[in-house]
């Protein structure tokens, strides 16, 4: 089973993955912001996982963020990791440089 969801966007320069909790307000803010910025991204709600998959994804998250708190955004396989809804930092890293 694969619980990772892809959200399409025209800005697909970087590989963006977000670890989220389905009930978390800050995670919703991050999802909304990426959508508004038209960034293509993947997300996985860690509270909706079970068994082996849960273990695997939690271990992956732990590598980037030992507290396993959400939202945790991983860009280009960990080249840049943003923990929490840090609006300015997200804009800076993923915004279009015009």
């Amino acid at each position: 089973m694969n619980s990772t969801t892809k959200v399409e966007g025209s800005n697909d320069e970087r590989d963006v993955k977000v670890f989220t909790i389905s009930t978390c307000g800050w995670c919703k803010k991050v999802k909304k912001m990426l959508k508004e910025m038209d960034v293509e991204y993947h997300y996985v709600d860690i509270d909706q996982l079970e068994g082996e998959e849960s273990k695997r994804i939690k271990e992956e998250l732990e590598d980037y963020n030992p507290k396993k708190s959400c939202p945790t955004m991983v860009i280009d396989d960990g080249e840049h990791v943003i923990i929490g809804y840090k609006e300015e930092e997200i804009k800076e890293v993923l915004g279009d440089e015009e």
Partner: peptide, 26 residues
């Protein structure tokens, strides 16, 4: 954010039987 958090508490109470923190994994 307030709306989302209250909804999260309702959802968690439904799921677990008590209003676990919406921003943490229960």
């Amino acid at each position: 954010l307030l709306e989302d958090l209250i909804e999260g508490l309702v959802e968690n109470e439904k799921r677990y039987g008590y209003p676990s923190c919406p921003c943490r994994e229960a």
